[in-house]
């Protein structure tokens, strides 16, 4: 039997390969690998359009529901509730969206292809960060739809186009940062369902124990104390100032600081836990 070459190149020399092997990963490689993984996530999104359900349906449904159900009770009428509520929905939508990041990562990690990613000489952060870069598209869709729906039911942001754009940008940054926390949950939980469960328990208190849907003053004192320090409250207030007044308030700074802290804590934790899966 004739043996035909598979590789069709010169003979493989192990010693030369050992000598030529890179000893560590350069920052440029990390960026390039992350973008490659983002490309993969975008392809996946395009081929599974049902992944867009949460970012399209939720802003539309929740904006309409909350406006007509709570509008009269909280602000007297729907129209005057909207400036309070739309930035709140924005925060809630973005939080739900980044919750999906963790669930999908967990699902993805159970697939055979992650075995190959682990066996490749690539940065361990790339499989985590790549999908998060792709998720920026999802945050942008969710945030834009929230404002679009708000405007459709009668919301007129006094901050103008720039103010709204600023609020959307802030929402995207917050969502991306917070997604690291859910990514960490994704790497420690046993299954995608568990990630979903844990994430819900994080998300609900964070959104509802904030000033997202009700004025702070309507809450009992002890709750006000929590709501005041809840980063989601800062984000909502910052977004309100941007969209309704067109001003960049100190709340923007607090929100960005909170984002930085979340990333600084959860990004290393996520990578460590992902590594431990080996």
């Amino acid at each position: 039997m004739s043996v035909t070459s598979v590789l069709g190149e010169q003979r493989v020399r192990p010693a030369d390969r050992v000598a030529a092997a890179r000893r560590r990963i350069s920052p440029r490689e990390v960026v390039s690998q992350t973008m490659t993984m983002a490309w993969r996530a975008l392809k996946k999104m395009r081929r599974n359009p049902e992944q867009f359900f949460d970012v399209t349906l939720q802003p539309i449904l929740f904006t309409a529901m909350f406006a007509y159900i709570f509008g009269g009770a909280i602000a007297g009428d729907v129209r005057s509730y909207l400036p309070l509520m739309i930035p709140g929905i924005l925060a809630q939508t973005v939080l739900t969206t980044c919750m999906a990041t963790g669930t999908q990562l967990r699902e993805d990690m159970e697939k055979g292809v992650f075995d190959r990613f682990k066996s490749l000489p690539m940065a361990r952060i790339a499989p985590l960060a790549g999908p998060m870069v792709a998720d920026l598209v999802r945050y942008a869709i969710a945030a834009t739809l929230t404002f679009g729906m708000g405007i459709a039911v009668g919301y007129r942001p006094d901050g103008g186009a720039l103010g709204v754009l600023g609020a959307i940008l802030l929402a995207i940054i917050s969502g991306w940062s917070l997604a690291w926390a859910f990514t960490w949950v994704g790497t420690i939980a046993r299954s995608a369902q568990a990630v979903q469960g844990i994430s819900m328990m994080i998300m609900f208190p964070l959104t509802f124990l904030s000033n997202a849907f009700v004025p702070l003053t309507s809450l009992p004192g002890w709750l006000q104390a929590f709501v005041r320090v809840n980063p989601v409250s800062h984000m909502v207030t910052a977004a309100r100032d941007l969209a309704n007044k067109g001003t960049i308030s100190a709340e923007v700074g607090w929100t960005l600081l909170a984002c930085l802290v979340v990333v600084a804590v959860f990004a290393p934790l996520s990578v460590r836990s992902y590594r431990r899966h080996l």
Binding site: P14, A15, R17, V18, A21, R22, R23, R24, I25, R40, K43, K44, R47, N48, K111, G112, V113, F114, D115, R116, S119, L120, P121, M122
Partner: peptide, 30 residues
């Protein structure tokens, strides 16, 4: 592997070894 310690230099090992698993580890979506 080829004189390189597996535990100490995993990054180098990953450049020297090709792995084909029992279950095809390719991306279903691509």
């Amino acid at each position: 592997i080829f004189g390189v310690d597996v535990a100490r230099q995993p990054h180098v090992i990953r450049q020297l070894v090709g792995v084909t698993g029992q279950y095809a580890s390719v991306d279903e979506n691509l």
